[in-house]
Structures are given as C-alpha cells and as structure tokens.
Nucleic acid binder design. Structure first.
Lengths: 130, 130, 130, 130
DNA sequence: GTGGTCTAGACCACA
DNA sequence: GTGGTCTAGACCACG
C-alpha cells in the first residue's frame, strides 16, 4: 500500500491519511479483513506523530470503514450498505464538483467518461484473490 | 440568488460562500456578465464580516470564475475551457468521492444516475440568455 | 457550573468531563443555546491540557449535544428526539445496571424510586428562566 | 449460559465477560450456589486468554458476587443486601444515564416503562429453585 | 481570541 | 507489543 502525504497542503495530515486509506480500500489495495499497519509503524514510516495516525484511524473507525481490535490492531470492515445520510452528503458533494466542471466548460459526456474510468479502476484485484 | 451559510459547519464560511456562488453560476442563477452584489452589501445581508466576503470573492477571482473591476464591482466571467490542472484536480476529487461510494456499497449505475440528475438540473436558465 | 474531575479514577478525564457536561445540561445548569467556556479557559480552570478539553468537546459535538461555531465557540444544542440506536444502547446499559441492583438485593420499588428522584431533580431551573 | 463477547468493542474483554456473568446471575441463568466453568474451560470455549477470564473472576469475587474455592472452583454467592457504597455508585451511574435520556428527549414515563420491562424479564427461573 | 492541528515523548491498560 | 490517554507548548486558519 502506497500512501502519499503532502505536508504543504492545507488539508490536515490526518484527513489526507484517512482519504488515502479510503481510496486504498476501494481500489482493493487493502481488502476486507486485511490488517492495517500498527499506529506506531505507520507513524514512523510516514515520519509523523502517533497521535496523527491515531486520529485518522479513529475517524475511519467512527465512519465504519475499519474496526479496531485491542488484541490485533485495526482491520478493514466489509462493505456497508448506503444509508440516507450518506446519499445526502454525496449529492451535496457532487453538486459542487459538477458545478465546477460545468463552469469550466466540461461536457457532461466527458465527465461521465471520467467517472466510469475511475469506477473501472477499482477492485481489479478482487477477482484475482479468489 | 439564495445563499445558505451554516455557521456551525466545519467548512470555513468564506469557502461555503465561494461554493454557493459557484453552484449559483452553474445553475444559471447568476448568468455570464451578471454583476455580483458589492462586498459590503453581501456581508450585511448575510450578517458576516466584510473580510469574509472579500476572501470568497478573491478566491473566485483567482480561480477565474469572476472578474473584479474597481469601478464596476465583480461580475461573472464567461465559461472557461477545461485546462489540464483542473482535470487533474477533478480526477483526484472524484477518485475520493467514488471510493467512498464504492465502500458504502453504492453501485456504479446508481452513482451515474445521480450525476446525470445533477447535470440535468443545471443551466435551465441558459437558453433564455440567447 | 461546577465540574468535578477525579484524576485517580480509571475513567479518562475527557470522558469524565463529557459526562459532567451532559449532566449539567440535563440538570439545567447549562441551558439550551448557552455558551460553554472556551477550551483554553476550561483547560486552565481544571488544570488540564487543551487537547483533553478539545477531545471532550469533540465527543459532545459528535453526539449532537453541542455545536461548535468557529466564531463564538461552543454552545448547547436544543433537545433531540430519541432515535432507535440510542434506545438500544439505553436498554443495554440499563440491563446491566438493573442486574447489579437485583443481585445486590435491591427491590424494584426502591430502584424505581431512585430513578424518579433523579428525574425530578432535573431542569428545576427551566421554568424559572421564562 | 450464553456469553457474547465483542472483540472490536472498546470495553475491555474482561469487563464484558464480568458484565455478562452479572446479567446471567440476575436473569437466573446462573443460580445461587451454582458452579461457574473453570477458568481454563471458559477461556478455551471463548477463544480468549486464561488471564482474561481470571481477571473477570477476580473482579466478580472482589465485588462479592462469587466465591472462589481452590478445591471446587468458583460458585455464585447468595443475594447480598444493598450497602451504602453500592447505592452511591448506583445513583451516580443512573444520574448519567438519565441525564442522557433527558437530553435525548425521552420522557420519564417511557424511561420507567423500560426499567419495569427489564426488571420483569429477570429471575424467571428463580421460583423453580424453591 | 477562537478552535484546529501537530509534535515529541511519556505512561498506562489490555491481552 | 497493541492502542488509549495525557502533557506542554507550538503554529495556523478563521473571522
């Protein structure tokens, strides 16, 4: 799993880390049930503080993406089912992103194509795992 | 033009304001060449600080969405053409959003349908401008 | 508002603090919309670290008990409506508490009386505020 | 006797175990004088460490709920009489639980009804012991 | 002046 | 060895 952090970015490190892990899960780089690195290891590897990693893991746990087991550390949860709250947030987020695309002159077709490509880039590893 | 701000939201007010204006432009509530309210007026209407509105306008100007003329105030720019930088950012943003959708169990079809709906909700006013 | 922390207790300080604030709200010592102390002030008053107070406030915010406004600090939210998730947790909690009472030989009547007394001790200040 | 442990829960396993046993006693699944499983057996059945079970038993012994006899293992103690210390702790616990219920908008009547239901679900087996 | 973030290093409970 | 908590002090974004 490759995680890239940008320390000059205004997005907090723990949020960047959370985002990278979310994408790693979706792309299959981290599969269901797989163990995440320990807080200490990851912090050292990335050259950041334990508590920063801790915060990212706590966020992922709270969102239901991972579970933290006192005995064996953190592991990836199974896929959830989409709830109403998430759909609302998703529509709000997309509304903004699509507005920007619209203003910047991007056609609907091109936008949809990009979405498809991203979707298709995910979980390529899943079938191979069987 | 209706602008909704949530002072308890973690998103900075000036960013919320910027987002609302971007969406207003995309939906045609603000058309090309249309004059934006003065900083002073908007700040008063919304009950926020002048500096906050100023910051939002500066952001929009820097992004090329509006022009600021000292004599005539701010006005909406024409549609841009999508540049490489924007496409990169868009792909990054979408990559995260789609990853979350994926993990939360949303199917590609449903996601695409939502995007279509949002696209279709835009620019209803545009034809009237011709 | 009087907050008592026990530094020798095994319950984390931020949880104790969270609990004390919850009880203060329920008893009317903190009324709806009332401003909480700033993180720094409270931390200094209690002789604890900013981040510990921060964590307690974040927990209360996440639970929906307070809102944090970037401009004016934290304030108490209006009463919520009980959701299913809460009722489940409540039943689990009560199941344990009542089991202990049962084993320790406490009669149902006595238990119910204690509950009533606690209920009646709350929000005495509310009507006076009008 | 059915014991459910959640390894991903933040509550320590030995505390969960202790809680489950307390509830089992109160519900009559474990009756007075009944022998508890040996530490070794229970640990194996639950797939946990001997020390964890040991810790739970020690806690129960210290609280007076069970007795541990080196020759005959652990057995459930007779019902106690409520002491002052317990009542204090009970009131503190209830104060917090009821405060949360209050803030979450639960009415006193509904709360009391839940308590009654839980009380009535207990000791169904008790009369058979006579 | 407010909360948000981050660090470096420490101690503790758990299993 | 794991995560959880806490400290003292720092810097930053926001308004």
């Amino acid at each position: 799993m490759i995680l890239k952090l940008n320390f000059e970015n205004e997005i907090p490190i723990y949020v960047q880390l959370r985002n990278q892990i979310v994408m790693a899960i979706a792309h299959g780089d981290l599969s269901q049930g797989e163990k995440l690195p320990t807080i200490r290891n990851l912090a050292e590897d990335l050259g950041i503080n334990n508590m920063t990693v801790n915060k990212a893991y706590a966020m992922l746990k709270q969102e239901g993406f991972i579970s933290i087991d006192r005995r064996h550390g953190a592991k990836v949860n199974p896929i959830l089912t989409p709830d109403f709250e998430f759909k609302e947030k998703l529509e709000d987020d997309l509304s903004l992103v699509i507005s920007e695309a619209e203003i910047r002159g991007m056609k609907k077709d091109e936008f949809m194509k990009i979405c498809e490509n991203i979707f298709d880039s995910m979980k390529k590893l899943k079938p191979q795992e069987k």
